[in-house]
């Protein structure tokens, strides 16, 4: 800000006051005080995000050579990742499974958020806490719980066996893509509910009354007023689930089996047993680019849809 233009008072007229230039700057510039307060966080985030990413990009341009690296820069890894069908297949499978889990979560969570926003009168807080509480507990344990439920000798199979409904365990339950999608949808539900709830809660009730007054029935009112106004919540809920789940590897590792493996498992393999870090870095960056691209397309499409709706 243009604080430097200030003309200093004549020092001869006011010899009593000692000039303290640094302090003067602090006192004058809010921006500087703000940046000083912000700096520890920014340093941590820079050290933890920016620099590692820069190195990740660098290493993706290197080549694995025994236990070391060939540090000459090359796009070979990217070419290889593009040529190997397994990489692309896993990438698209991950995107597909995350997409399915996202759609399922948002569709299932929307009525729930709607109910709490519009129909719960007392103890709203309790409902919100109940809906989000499981999210705060270990992700690993929630996934583990699904393994217990879906396992070959798990809750469902043994339950059905005990009641005599089946005489042989259902094998498709565990180690399948659907097992992964169900678990992801369940584990990330809280991430969907909060933004959906907030966007629904914000809607001015008199707008809904106006729509009714102007002749809309409940369905048309929902489509023409409630849904468009809650669209920001739908968008952020979708992105908040889709983006992190594409990179997930706990769920596919515990529940996916060979059919349910995702790109995250492949990345983990490159950094673990396969020990090809440059390829792991390459796959991470390709994943990031896909996520960013798809998120932008999604945002663009929802903007378009919003214009159509209103």
């Amino acid at each position: 800000m243009g604080d430097t233009a200030a003309s200093p008072p004549d020092p001869l007229l006011h010899p009593k006051r000692r000039r303290r230039p640094l302090r003067g700057l602090m006192q004058r510039s809010e921006a500087i005080r703000a940046y000083i307060l912000m700096s520890p966080t920014l340093v941590v985030m820079t050290l933890g995000i920016v620099i590692p990413f820069a190195i990740l990009i660098t290493i993706s341009l290197w080549t694995a050579q025994g236990f070391g690296f060939d540090t000459s820069l090359t796009l070979n890894n990217y070419a290889q990742a593009n040529e190997q069908p397994i990489y692309n297949a896993l990438l698209f499978r991950s995107l597909k499974m995350s997409g399915l889990a996202t759609v399922a979560t948002v569709l299932l969570s929307y009525p729930m958020a709607y109910y709490v926003a519009f129909h719960v009168k007392r103890n709203k807080m309790m409902w919100i806490v109940l809906m989000t509480l499981p999210f705060w507990t270990s992700y690993l344990l929630r996934v583990f719980a699904w393994k217990v439920v879906l396992g070959y000798e798990g809750v469902i199979n043994s339950g059905l066996l005990a009641t005599g409904l089946i005489d042989k365990p259902l094998e498709f339950l565990l180690y399948s893509q659907s097992a992964v999608v169900i678990t992801l949808a369940h584990a990330w539900a809280a991430f969907a509910i909060l933004p959906l709830y907030v966007s629904l809660e914000k809607i001015d009730r008199s707008l809904l009354e106006a729509a009714t007054d102007l002749g809309d029935g409940p369905v048309m009112r929902f489509l023409r007023v409630t849904l468009p106004l809650s669209l920001p919540g739908v968008i952020s809920a979708s992105l908040l689930i889709f983006i992190p789940t594409t990179g997930d590897y706990i769920t596919p590792a515990l529940l996916g089996g060979p059919d349910g493996t995702m790109i995250g498992n492949l990345i983990q393999l490159q950094f673990g047993p396969v020990n090809n870090w440059p390829m792991g870095a390459t796959l991470s960056i390709i994943l990031m680019l896909w996520i960013a691209g798809l998120a932008l397309v999604f945002l663009f499409l929802t903007q378009l849809a919003k214009k159509k709706l209103t």
Binding site: A6, S7, P8, P9, R17, R28
Partner: peptide, 15 residues
Amino acid sequence: PTSGEIYIDGQPMSD
């Protein structure tokens, strides 16, 4: 002030 000065009881007040 972006420019100019405020005096209170004879003392300049910027800073």
